[in-house]
């Protein structure tokens, strides 16, 4: 039973103070792995959606979903099936761009990756990019040679494809 893989867990929770602490605390206490967690308001007033990226085998995942479900403020939990899930992350990258050549190269790369330049200063460019985490990783790799100064990533958020909701 070593079919450990990354899982996308989507949880619908009450939007109350402390709920993130309860979820994060549960992961720590039970020794579950947590790669990323995002949370924000959902389509319903007072309800938030949380996306958690976690690694583990089937048994661990079963425990994660069951333990999450036990939290009083958690309404629904689903382990999303990657092929039928849209996963996106937002990333902001501040990079050195000291001369015209570097600047135009960076802008080209950003365009190829459907990123946008959102801030410019004499020596820097800041790029905004959204996409699946591996696409963001690829752009970051390309930009390394220019000297990346700062990266801010949101962590992935996800939603099911098609008409299905959780």
């Amino acid at each position: 039973m070593t079919n450990e893989r990354s899982h996308i867990i989507s949880a619908v929770v009450l939007h109350r103070p402390g709920v993130l602490q309860r979820v994060a605390g549960l992961f720590t206490r039970r020794g579950f792995n947590i790669d990323a967690i995002t949370v924000g308001p959902s389509e319903k007033e007072g309800i938030a959606r949380m996306t958690i990226i976690s690694r583990g085998d089937e048994k661990v995942l079963e425990q994660i979903t069951k333990q999450l479900n036990k939290l009083i403020e958690v309404i629904k939990v689903r382990d999303l099936d990657p092929p039928s899930t849209v996963l996106r992350e937002l990333c902001l990258i501040k990079t050195h761009a000291p001369h015209e050549k570097a600047r135009s190269e960076i802008i080209q790369y950003a365009n190829i990756f459907r990123g946008r330049i959102i801030d410019v200063s004499p020596d820097n460019l800041t790029i905004e990019i959204t996409g699946a985490p591996d696409k963001i990783d690829a752009l970051i790799d390309l930009l390394r040679s220019f000297g990346i100064q700062e990266i801010a990533r949101t962590g992935p958020t996800a939603i099911t494809r098609g008409a299905k909701t959780i």
């Binding site: 048994k59 079963e62 425990q63 069951k66 333990q67 479900n69 036990k70």
Partner: peptide, 8 residues
């Protein structure tokens, strides 16, 4: 009564 106990 607690599903999390099943198979834990």
């Amino acid at each position: 009564v607690d599903p999390a106990e099943i198979g834990k």
